[in-house]
């Protein structure tokens, strides 16, 4: 299978603080990678490096053959990126919001693409409703629709289920599984072990900017008693003991 993203020996700093330290991993196309780690571990920094938002001090990110620090615009056009806690334009209707992103991404038939995206997230009846009238779950659906409207080759979702109720979280898990089935590569950051367990094929564990584990979910589960949360705790405790 072809490599989608290859991260090699990445060093990244925030001021004098080293956020990523000689970080390497790769993910094949069509896989779903879950990024786990404690708060401040470097998950969002890693994602921003992959998207080319933050240039690395050292190392390289190659995404579908493009260097992230040089081909930022190209990567933007083939990817869908949902930052953690991002907002929407509340004065827009759902249709206007998605049309805005479809046009920015220069989709050939923006109206058709928007209709398809709205159907995917099951908000057809809310097409002309202002986003300010949406619930948190519906806004999250609108945001997901905005990152799939241009048929991206890979998706990066930072805490997409943060603050959602169980039912909406289940809906999101269904969407992500459907995206993976369609062959999309998905990278998902989440603090919820259940979400990671139900959608991911591979897992990356990061702490203090170091890659502590990268492999299949099955290999990761062997680190604990068969659940993501116990494996997480064991990997985390081992790291703390080493320190």
């Amino acid at each position: 299978m072809e490599t989608c993203i290859k991260v090699s020996h990445l060093d990244c700093y925030y001021g004098k603080k080293k956020a990523l330290d000689d970080f390497s991993f790769e993910i094949e196309q069509g896989k779903c990678l879950g990024i786990l780690g404690p708060n401040g571990a470097g998950k969002t920094t890693l994602i921003r490096n992959i998207m080319g938002v933050i240039p690395p001090k050292k190392g390289q990110v190659i995404t579908l053959g493009y260097d992230a620090s040089e081909c930022f615009t190209k990567i933007g056009s083939i990817s869908g990126y949902l930052p953690e806690g991002s907002s929407v334009f509340m004065n827009m209707t759902l249709y206007e919001y998605l049309l805005f992103f479809a046009r920015l991404r220069e989709v050939e038939n923006p109206e058709g693409a928007v209709a398809a995206a709205i159907e995917t997230v099951e908000l057809t009846d809310e097409r002309n409703t202002k986003l300010r009238k949406f619930s948190k779950g519906m806004i999250q659906k609108a945001k997901i629709a905005s990152v799939i409207v241009h048929n991206p080759k890979f998706l990066i979702l930072d805490e997409p289920t943060d603050g959602l109720d169980i039912s909406t979280t289940n809906t999101f898990i269904k969407y992500i599984n459907e995206f993976v089935k369609k062959g999309l590569t998905v990278i998902i950051c989440s603090h919820l072990p259940d979400v990671i367990d139900r959608v991911c094929t591979d897992i990356l564990f990061i702490d203090s900017g170091h890659n502590l584990f990268c492999g299949t979910k099955e290999e990761f589960l062997k680190q604990g008693d068969g659940s993501v949360s116990s494996a997480y705790q064991n990997v985390y405790d081992r790291r703390r003991a080493q320190k």
Binding site: T73, G76, Y81, S86, S87, V88, L104, S146
Partner: peptide
């Protein structure tokens, strides 16, 4: 702050 800039700037906008 709302991270909409980050969303817009990762669509290919310069």
């Amino acid at each position: 702050q709302a991270r909409t800039g980050e969303m817009i700037l990762t669509t290919g906008v310069t």
